[in-house]
């Protein structure tokens, strides 16, 4: 565990908590893509099946349980408790265009052709693109609430910090996982445009809105 990995995990946790609190405090999930949140719940479910097969550390187990629980809580708030505030008309990204190719790819390109490993690979590939429905929704409405941009910032920062973690681990531990690294690079690149808007607009106190 190095500092980049730890801050990456904490950044991920911050993103998840920010989103949950935003929905809970405002009693509304307006502007949030339920589809992205469903995909993230699927990502955590398929990745953390190893909770049943191997124990790594108390930290590892607790974080996994927190991520899974929070992602299901978020989906519950969007599709059940605050369903009336869910902006389904703008959440129109076709998720099958992500899930089907990603499913196919995880069968073709993986470290080991076993059920758990394929599901882990699926989750890594799916996570890299799971934010697309949310970004699509923002591009459609042309704006995002500031709190939503904070959520996106920490969610993007998490994978960027993991990239530094992987460079660190390559040099100091000889650790290298090509699948995770390539997917992590793709995932981080998807946030670049947003990072630019976040720094040039949101951090200067302006609302994130896109030109019409």
């Amino acid at each position: 565990m190095n500092i980049f990995r730890l801050t990456g995990d904490l950044s991920h946790l911050a993103a998840i908590i920010i989103l949950l609190l935003k929905i809970w405090k405002t009693r509304s999930c307006a502007g949030i893509s339920g589809k992205s949140q469903l995909l993230f719940a699927l990502v955590f479910t398929t990745r953390y099946l190893d909770l049943f097969t191997s124990f790594i550390s108390l930290y590892n187990t607790s974080m996994k349980l927190i991520y899974v629980a929070c992602s299901y809580a978020t989906v519950y708030l969007i599709y059940m408790k605050f369903k009336a505030t869910y902006d389904g008309n703008h959440d129109t990204f076709r998720v099958e265009f992500l899930v089907v190719p990603v499913g196919g790819l995880s069968f073709l390109v993986n470290h080991d052709f076993s059920p758990l490993e394929i599901l882990w690979t699926f989750s890594i590939y799916l996570e890299s693109v799971a934010i697309l429905p949310q970004l699509f929704m923002i591009s459609k409405t042309g704006e995002a609430e500031t709190i939503t941009t904070h959520y996106l910032f920490f969610l993007g920062l998490y994978r960027a910090l993991y990239l530094i973690n992987w460079i660190w681990r390559y040099y100091f531990e000889g650790f290298f996982d090509l699948i995770a690294v390539v997917a992590g690079v793709v995932q981080t690149i998807l946030y670049c445009d947003f990072f630019y808007l976040y720094v040039t607009k949101v951090l200067k106190g302006k609302k994130l809105s896109l030109p019409a």
Binding site: I56, N60, D112, F176
Partner: peptide, 10 residues
């Protein structure tokens, strides 16, 4: 070494 299992990262 592909570090297949266990997965120590989240």
């Amino acid at each position: 070494d592909l570090n297949i299992n266990p997965k120590d990262e989240l």
